[in-house]
Simulated assay, not measured.
Amino acid sequence: MAPKTKYNMVKEQIIEWISSGKVSPGEKIHSENELVKLFSVSRHTVRQAVGDLVHEGWLYREQGAGTFCSDHSHEPKLQSNTQHLTDNGRNIGVITTYISDYIFPSIIKGIESYLTTQGYSLIFACTDNDVEKEKQCLQTMLSRNIDGLIVEPTKSSNYNPNINYYLELEQKNIPYLMINQFYSQLMPPHFVMNDEHGGYIATEHLIELGHEKIIGVFKTDDLQGVNRMQGFIRAFREHEVPFFSDMVITYTTEDQDHTILEKLKSFLTGEDKPSAIVCYNDQLALNVLNILRELDLSVPEDVSIIGYDDSFLAEASEVKLTSVSHPKMDMGIEAAKWIISAVEANGSSTHSTVYEPELVIRHSTAPIKKTTLI
């Protein structure tokens, strides 16, 4: 078993305090400084863990007063393992890469909020972006005789070895919908972002602020990252900004925690530093922000940063992140409506939806300093 991360350690301990009654609804939790000392972790780790718990409904913030325990006694909580929430004979499976982190709780809550009002049972599972775990999830779903399936693809930019399970769903006339991305081998119905355009508008914003030395950091085993990188490169071409060596840094699921951050730190300590960074998502942007602090570089004075997904993390730090929007809960609700319609029509619709992104401008981007050049 992999060692527990400090981030998850903090989250799980706070949840345990709440679940055991050590912290009551409406009671203020420890301050940020107290949590840093208590767990011997960085301020960034505490902010990320607390921000996640606020987003999931365990905690709530009051401006100027602090962070408090929510009244969670009537709210179902999402688990990281497969979970059958109710049992009324009509089952919808939901498979995501992750359940309890980042934007996924909002997507799942959107799905859950609609399906449960229509009297459907939900079966949740997550793959941790691992194809072998995806295989296990699909086998579980098929064994439970689901009526429909909503899936977030695992490592969507690669060939998927589990295609036969999706073909089995089709053979059994079980409709399925893919969200966030889709497997190109299947070309199934899907609800996705126009991620190429998202990468483009993020980069264009920086170019319009006068930045030319811009690097992009993208996760390339998921199709979202590949498409965002394409938009990043297109913005350079269309605005006739010269390309330069090492303008793109890539990483995969396996090396996202340490390898990519060390690579980025090495790049930022070189002589030819970038003046702006486009990040694969908000989670990465917060990690980049932490590295810049360590290097005594200010955001946006020294380096501008743009995240992606406009998640709760975009406002979890003292530097509020400019970020590309993601529909999150709306996508979940619309996906739930689609799957019920397909189930009740006794067949899979071919309808797909592409959401157009917008740039939410906050405080992490600013015009380039003209005085930096000698």
Rank of each mutant, 00 (worst) to 15 (best):
18 I>M: 04
7 Y>K: 13
150 I>V: 12
2 A>W: 11
188 P>Y: 12
43 R>V: 11
234 R>A: 10
14 I>W: 04
298 S>P: 10
74 H>M: 11
107 I>K: 10
290 N>D: 14
51 G>V: 12
353 T>H: 05
87 D>E: 14
141 M>H: 01
263 K>R: 10
368 I>N: 11
236 F>A: 05
260 I>Q: 02
137 C>A: 13
162 N>H: 01
119 G>P: 15
290 N>K: 15
234 R>E: 14
359 L>Y: 02
183 Y>K: 10
341 S>H: 12
303 V>F: 01
133 K>T: 15
353 T>I: 12
74 H>G: 12
105 P>F: 08
241 V>F: 00
134 E>S: 00
305 I>C: 07
97 T>A: 09
248 V>I: 10
222 D>F: 06
55 H>C: 13
225 G>E: 11
2 A>K: 15
100 S>Q: 12
228 R>C: 08
186 L>D: 07
39 F>L: 03
18 I>G: 03
334 E>A: 15
7 Y>H: 07
285 A>W: 03
347 G>N: 14
202 A>S: 10
155 K>F: 08
171 Q>C: 05
287 N>M: 13
355 Y>V: 09
248 V>L: 04
33 N>K: 13
77 K>R: 09
42 S>F: 00
62 E>S: 07
21 G>Q: 12
135 K>A: 00
125 A>L: 04
141 M>Y: 00
249 I>C: 02
150 I>S: 08
84 H>T: 11
325 S>L: 11
98 Y>Q: 13
143 S>V: 01
21 G>N: 10
275 S>I: 02
87 D>T: 15
290 N>T: 14
262 E>V: 04
45 T>G: 04
338 W>M: 08
302 D>G: 09
349 S>V: 13
25 P>I: 05
241 V>L: 08
301 E>G: 12
38 L>G: 01
294 E>S: 08
204 E>W: 06
362 R>K: 00
121 S>V: 07
56 E>H: 09
128 D>A: 01
347 G>Q: 05
281 N>A: 03
20 S>P: 09
222 D>E: 14
206 L>I: 04
84 H>L: 14
123 I>P: 13
142 L>H: 10
253 T>H: 05
326 H>D: 04
349 S>F: 09
75 E>R: 15
191 F>V: 03
77 K>L: 05
126 C>I: 05
367 P>D: 00
110 G>N: 10
223 L>Y: 11
366 A>W: 06
115 L>F: 06
178 M>H: 06
337 K>A: 13
12 E>D: 14
177 L>Q: 12
30 H>I: 11
258 H>F: 03
300 P>E: 09
167 L>K: 15
302 D>W: 13
339 I>D: 05
227 N>W: 02
